[in-house]
Design a protein around this nucleic acid. Structure first.
Lengths: 142, 142
DNA sequence: CCACATGTAAGTAAAATGATGACAAGGCTG
DNA sequence: CAGCCTTGTCATCATTTTACTTACATGTGG
């Protein structure tokens, strides 16, 4: 799943905007996907220590302030690729270029990925919540 | 096609390393894909002004020095996404968060993409060629 | 014990990706 | 000019990825 990341941010923003814990069905209604998808993503976020959920009891809750959760934390929590840029697979190793291109690309892609992640590290969930409620008229969820 | 970008860099590096023009079959042998794929990508690169090819006559050639071709030029030339991070599609507009999340994410993703592209802009094809031939023992292609 | 919530596996549909065959269009050479 | 080779492009097909959904085991609380 690739929009998992956006869904994860949506979920966390929702919890940050909410006055209390929210169940997967309720969250699913806002995100616009099946509750199973929500439970899958909250599972990843729970394992990353960003929120708590408990089997049998309704509701997910943030484990810490939205100011202390960066978008990079979220990126690392979900099944996001190590590098968004992909190296091609079958270069001819008998050719000098084919033999060296993968390593060269991996290096550059790694640097580019670091630049992208560095920006995500600068943005917090609180920034997102603010931006979201600035666009839409203020109104607490629930 | 998503590995198009890596294939494009491979092709250009090959031309930079070569002593003369190379045909699609020859290039395909180094890249490890069908010649049709090569011709598709060279078509994109030609339209972007990075190389020249001519129907009927074998061989592709760079239009300018490898030092004057950045990896961002290549990125823009191929069918690469405007943003590598994707926003989810069906948020509930009746929910405050659902209504504002897409715009908020687009803004952040745009900034992150800019950071990634800024790095690609700093790397030239000449840098790649150097790195490639540093890994593998020096040896001119052809 | 029963209603309800989460966690997770399994299955299916739809879309993206990759690979390849076919052929028209155009140049080159004998 | 005639045959041969090369590029440009379209169409098809297999594979993989993504998305969506059903089903059900596991656990909580009244």
């Amino acid at each position: 799943m690739n929009s998992q990341y956006s869904i994860a941010v949506h979920i966390l923003t929702l919890l940050d905007s909410s006055s209390g814990p929210m169940g997967s069905v309720e969250i699913a209604d806002s995100v616009g996907v099946n509750p199973v998808v929500i439970r899958t993503v909250t599972g990843l976020l729970r394992r990353a220590g960003l929120l708590t959920t408990q089997r049998g009891v309704a509701g997910a809750e943030l484990t810490r302030s939205a100011r202390q959760i960066s978008l990079l934390d979220v990126y690392r929590a979900v099944d996001a690729p190590d590098s968004v840029l992909k190296v091609h697979q079958n270069p001819n190793l008998a050719c000098p270029v084919g033999a060296g291109i993968q390593r060269a690309l991996e290096d550059i892609y790694g640097e580019a990925q670091a630049a992208l992640e560095a920006h995500l590290a600068e943005v917090t969930l609180a920034d997102i919540t603010r931006a979201v409620h600035q666009t839409a008229p203020q109104q607490e969820v629930r």
